[in-house]
Design a protein around this nucleic acid. Structure first.
Length: 415
RNA sequence: CGGGGCGUAGCUCAGUUUGGCUAGAGCGCAGCGUUCGGGACGCUGAGGCCGUAGGUUCAAGUCCUACCGCCCCGACCA
């Protein structure tokens, strides 16, 4: 992609509307723009990151044996009344009346919808287990949207649901998801803490949260100094370890994932039952597994930045390489830039060519701000010695390489 | 919803305390020239319903009232 052909509105200064690090960098690097508090447009660069995150999520969900589907965001309120959750969720649910007078809401989550769907096609234990997931926009009229994408009223979530014939099956799926989640966050370049957590309005008895330690995180996790046991911190809880009683320390975190053993809360309420081998009718046993996909983008930025901007982990980077021709009026420089560009494209490497008529400093600053993992700088200096200058955004190290070795050296940086 | 902060050019801000004549700067943008490996320099220029609506006053960006919007703290959550 050529810089002049896409839309990357970078900002030199921190916008007044942002306070947290990820919010500032999201705006400065031209990844998103706010429409109103809690609703954001994803610009080309931001969407590329989002797509990369979604691809990782898809690969790992598929590896867990889950199948992707897509449920409606538009939902009849009636289905929520059947589980009583219209009351639990209350004002957070965005509700309105359609032209037929039907009460409708925009889905804040999808347990009711998926359970209703599955209940209509479930009759035998032979159909179980089954795990379904989707990546979809959720709508929540949050009391206070915050920190840009971290708490938005419209956000993208991956939600998965497991259906089992017994507790043992649920345990197995739960463990598989737990492991899958760890791989997802690792591939996203994140250090995470996992904690035992309250199930809240989701119901069920067991739940775990996946927390990204970050100074701007709105949650607090207690980490035991001795046994490393972790627990979501709630006001009033003692500040020592629930397991060994030793002193625990507080760590600010962003919650990026939460998995629940739901049991039969939804299947019982919505009649999702099956006949077991003895011919007995049982409610299906469920689990649900969420990841805040758009929130993940913020969390990744929170953990991967420096004074100059974002440092994208390689798998989520919007482009893997940026080529910086320092003088676009110099035909030799542009020839070199274009030939490298073509070679990278031909090798399937996502590359951005900064073909703007800007001074070197501007290009360096923007390249660092938007956080592309590998820079190739092309100027008269390097051309004269017949070498290519390659820089790692993360290590902030320049190396001069032979043109024939370029591809190999780039792969060493971007994996 | 309660508490705090903010709202002036595309962006970041000064000016509001103590009302006064034609509303400013830097960056960005357009043109010309000089530059050209770390956000260059000079000159010229375009760009404002000072968040909105009322009010006070001879006079309001500045004072008063209401409303709107954004940010931060609290209840909520991926």
């Amino acid at each position: 992609m050529l810089w002049t052909k896409t839309f990357i509105p970078t900002l030199k200064e921190n916008p007044q509307e942002a306070e947290s690090i990820s919010h500032k960098l999201l705006l400065r690097a031209g990844l998103v723009r706010m429409l109103f508090s809690g609703a954001y447009s994803y610009l080309p660069l931001g969407l590329r990151v989002l797509n990369n995150i979604q691809n990782i999520v898809r690969q790992e969900m598929n590896a867990c044996g889950a199948s992707e589907l897509l449920l409606p965001a538009l939902q009849p309120l009636e289905i929520w009344q059947r589980t009583g959750r219209d009351k639990d969720i209350g004002e957070v649910m965005i509700k309105f009346t359609d032209r037929r007078g039907r009460k409708v809401c925009l889905g804040p989550t999808h347990e009711e919808i998926i359970t209703d769907l599955v209940s209509k096609h479930l009759s035998s234990y032979k159909q179980l287990p089954v795990v379904l997931y989707q990546i979809q926009t959720k709508f929540r009229d949050e009391i206070r949207p915050r920190f840009g994408l971290i708490r938005a009223c419209e956000f993208i979530m991956k939600d998965a649901y497991s259906f089992d014939r017994d507790e043992a099956g649920l345990d197995k799926n739960y463990q598989a998801m737990y492991a899958g989640y760890k791989r997802i966050f690792e591939r996203c370049g994140l250090e995470i803490l996992t904690t035992e957590a309250d199930s809240g309005m989701m119901g069920g008895k067991v739940s775990h949260e996946f927390m990204v330690p970050a100074t701007d995180g709105e949650d607090v996790v207690l980490v035991c100094s001795e046994c490393k046991f972790t627990k979501t911190y709630k006001d009033g809880d003692k500040e020592d370890c629930a397991k060994c009683g030793k002193k625990a320390s507080k760590v600010n975190c962003i919650e990026v994932g939460h998995i629940f053993k739901l049991g039969t809360k939804y299947s019982a309420a919505l009649g999702a039952q099956f006949l077991d081998a003895q011919g007995k009718l049982n409610p299906v046993i469920m689990g649900c597994y969420g990841i805040g996909v758009s929130r993940l983008m913020s969390a990744i930025i929170e953990q991967n930045n420096d004074d100059s901007g974002i440092i994208w982990p390689k798998e989520v980077a919007p482009y893997k390489v940026i080529i910086l021709p320092l003088d676009i009026s110099d035909s030799k420089i542009m020839e070199s830039a274009n030939s490298i560009y073509r070679e990278l494209v031909d090798n399937g490497i996502e590359v951005l060519l900064d073909d703007r008529d800007e001074r070197a400093g501007v290009k360096f600053k923007d390249a660092e701000l938007i956080g592309i993992p590998a820079f190739i700088t092309i100027g008269a200096k390097t051309l004269a010695v017949n070498k290519i200058e390659l820089k790692s955004r993360k290590l902030r190290q320049n190396i001069l390489v032979e043109r024939v070795d370029l591809l190999k050296e780039i792969k060493a940086i971007i994996g």
